[in-house]
Amino acid sequence: MGDQVTRPALVLIGAPGSGKSTVGRLLAERLGVPFRDTDEDVEAVAGKPVSDIFVEDGEERFRELEAEAVRRALEEHPGVLALGGGAVLNEDTQARLAGHRVAYLEVGLSDAVQRVGLGSARPLLVLNPRSQLKRLMDARRPIYERLATITVKTDGLTPEAVADALA
């Protein structure tokens, strides 16, 4: 197989609110390649929104579906690929990202809070959204930084400006 494997042009990682889906769509359009979001893949397989998977099936089941979605997408998707914010917590996923072009969209807490919207249906941010988001971002930052081949600080930038920086 080796060189015949289709590889994403770019894989986007980052915390909720970093702009992975929005920037990913813009960038894919600019590059003339398809866009794919692993959260959407998980929803398609499960037949329900991510928030419902968390509530009805639990985070563990969601993470299993997510790891499989990421594995499949890394093997078959040629365009821009956005991973769910927590996908990088999976060690198998971390190993699979080696050798890929991975862009970490770094976002500060206040920008992330504004973008996510604290009344949102993001399952891990239910109780105290701001402190949950901060805790989650602090825990994941070292993983994002280690996996990234490029980092773009998104604070104060429009999605278009971030896509420009990546292009």
Rank of each mutant, 00 (worst) to 15 (best):
54 F>Y: 13
54 F>H: 00
55 V>N: 08
56 E>D: 13
57 D>K: 11
58 G>T: 02
58 G>R: 06
59 E>T: 01
59 E>M: 03
61 R>M: 06
61 R>C: 05
61 R>Q: 07
65 L>M: 08
65 L>G: 06
66 E>C: 02
67 A>D: 00
68 E>W: 09
69 A>W: 09
69 A>M: 03
71 R>C: 03
72 R>K: 13
76 E>L: 13
80 V>N: 04
80 V>E: 01
83 L>T: 01
83 L>M: 07
85 G>M: 03
88 V>C: 05
90 N>R: 08
94 Q>D: 02
95 A>N: 09
96 R>Y: 03
96 R>F: 03
97 L>W: 13
99 G>L: 13
105 L>I: 06
106 E>Y: 10
109 L>Y: 07
109 L>T: 00
109 L>W: 11
109 L>G: 02
109 L>F: 12
114 Q>I: 08
118 L>Y: 07
120 S>I: 09
123 P>N: 09
125 L>R: 12
126 V>D: 10
126 V>M: 12
128 N>A: 13
129 P>V: 02
129 P>C: 10
130 R>T: 07
135 R>T: 13
136 L>W: 04
139 A>N: 08
146 R>M: 10
147 L>N: 02
150 I>A: 14
150 I>F: 10
152 V>K: 05
154 T>H: 10
154 T>W: 12
155 D>M: 04
160 E>T: 11
160 E>W: 08
162 V>Y: 05
163 A>N: 07
164 D>Y: 09
